[in-house]
Design a protein around this nucleic acid. Structure first.
Lengths: 337, 337
DNA sequence: AATCCAAATGGGAACGTTCCCAACAAACGG
DNA sequence: CCGTTTGTTGGGAACGTTCCCATTTGGATT
């Protein structure tokens, strides 16, 4: 039972003014009689007048809305990133429309269409593990709507990207394990479609190489991030003839799942096997044993991405188009290694 | 550098049609020549045409957008609830605009204004600990925009509410502690402004009464949910002449913080002191020792709230206006008690 | 052959606002 | 006293769509 919404025309009629004058008051323009201004503001207040952003946006071609598409919501990574983005966006007067693609390419494409239809001023996106074709994002370029990638980026698109130094983070994590005397370090890697998976894998390999350890193909598995399967892989690592004495997991949820599996098998961490994760999720410092992990400034990633996007929306900086912001990681050594 | 967006008029001109006909095709209306339809669809596809929801919403007075305002984003409670709401909303074709009020009344009021300006079709809200005046929500009623409360509800507003049985959950948690032989059970309660705080406190009192334990005022503290202060209160409970042998915390973040403080003091949980939380946050099962807690179906709360809201938007069911949905809690007993 | 009907299309108002341009009055300077 | 400025207001197009009400056309019915 929607009541008729109060419009500037209603106010204008009541006060025997034109909508132009009322509009001028409400938008804070100059050249309007103080008495008139007063009267308009009072009536607006009294009638709970709210500007209709739809109409305004239609005219100004600006919605002050930015879209954010993430592959999933579980874990603490993306929620944290969203919080960061939301903070920056709110401060700059932007609204956030969020949507998750459930790690599915089709859903991602559908989501971009929704964003387009809703006339977002810009888009923050972290792509799914399935995304290999980027035509759905090309549309944004063609329409001149800025995009900023974060975390899961697309290398051959011209757009700012916010990432951490995954290679370096992985390198230091694995090097740390080697310094602790581990020789058989397994890597439960992410899907090869993701650049971050490849970079972390490369960091892993480099650390082995630096320490003259030959890589054992059996100790490296790329998986699809389905946590239910972690058990299988961990068991694989442990059942090898020459079993693993450490696991470097693609991310913290994976590492945490691995720890559960290992504990259930009755093995001791880190005595029997060490575990290292990536991201420093909220739970990582609380779990028993506390997880050694490569911390990422997740909230800052969200903030930086949002800031970059807003800068792009406001000014018109085409030179930035492929700027890459690499944030620092930090190895947090806890009891699991 | 926004390029001119493709409109139905562009398509109409190109094909020598009127915008009416193009509109008919794009909205899937009947009575249009199959050949014409075909041509329009092809050109729309080729030109990356996207309907402008602003214009549509302006006419139809429906944005297919629902707003959600939460007091904060940290912890796993509200993110989980949002995930649930987002899922239901997406399925029903609604977008979600989220905003957080940072536990501040002013921000909450500002957020409601933004929601109003953006013409949301409905609002999901969990109020801040500061909110005592509900005029900013009354506007929604007056405008006929449905609201659904969840978790932090407002008792004297006519609107559906989704909550759990806080009284019962607290009762069972405390009763459980008593069964385990605890006599000096402290309650670190939430702010008295929140109804859930009061209900949990009442559950606590009732459990003591049932077991003929007299309540000790010194063992009950209402606090403002600032986790930094937990240390002070826990130490207070432990330094009493007759110290506490159990703590029932208002929520899991509080309980987890308490556990850290207790462990740092060198005390053993649950031997020296038991701890019970509320909500079953993600981290609760992982922490050492695993936390006994009253689990809430958080995601379902979000889903239920969203569903209730959408039902209200679609049909016009005024009888529901003050329906209260109470979901079940479950006491999850772990090692901390 | 005259009439009617349905299918296909076009025209234009409406949604609530902004913003440009014009209109008008009062005040001012010479 | 007249031209010019300044302050204040009004009128109307535009934004991109939907939707109601014509209008046109060709075929079917009588």
């Amino acid at each position: 039972m929607k009541r008729h919404q109060v419009t500037i025309i209603d106010i204008a009629k009541e006060l025997n003014l034109s909508k132009s004058t009322v509009s001028r008051v409400l938008t804070g323009h100059a050249n309007v009689n103080p008495a008139t201004r007063q009267a308009v503001l009072e009536l607006a207040e009294k009638w709970d007048y709210q500007r209709n952003m739809l109409a305004i946006s239609l005219i100004t071609k600006k919605t002050n809305t930015i879209g954010i598409i993430v592959p999933e919501f579980s874990g603490s990574y993306f929620p944290q990133a969203i919080i960061g983005a939301q903070e920056v966006a709110a401060k700059a007067g932007y609204n956030l429309i969020i949507s998750q693609s459930n790690e599915t390419y089709e859903t991602e494409v559908a989501n971009t269409k929704v964003m387009l239809a809703n006339q977002v001023d810009g888009l923050l996106i972290s792509v799914t593990k399935e995304t290999r074709n980027f035509d759905h994002l090309g549309v944004f370029h063609r329409k001149g709507i800025p995009i900023v990638f974060f975390n899961r980026v697309c290398d051959d698109m011209e757009a700012p990207k916010v990432i951490v130094d995954d290679y370096d983070g992985a390198f230091r994590a694995v090097d740390h394990l080697i310094q602790r005397g581990r020789k058989r370090i397994a890597h439960l890697a992410g899907p090869t479609s993701l650049i971050i998976s490849v970079k972390r894998l490369n960091g892993y390999k480099a650390a082995l190489r630096k320490n003259n350890i030959e890589m054992d193909e059996e100790l490296v598995i790329s998986y699809d991030l389905d946590l239910d399967k972690v058990k299988i892989y961990v068991n694989h690592f442990l059942n090898l003839e020459n079993p693993a004495d450490a696991i470097f997991a693609f991310n913290d949820p994976t590492a945490i799942e691995a720890i559960q599996v290992i504990k259930k098998r009755g093995l001791k961490i880190p005595k029997d096997i060490a575990v290292v994760g990536f991201s420093d999720d909220y739970a990582s410092g609380l779990i028993d044993p506390p997880l050694t992990t490569v911390a990422q400034p997740v909230k800052d990633i969200g903030k930086t991405a949002a800031q970059l996007l807003i800068d792009q929306i406001n000014r018109d900086v085409s030179e930035w188009k492929s700027m890459i912001k690499v944030l620092k990681t930090e190895l947090i050594i806890r009891k699991s290694s």
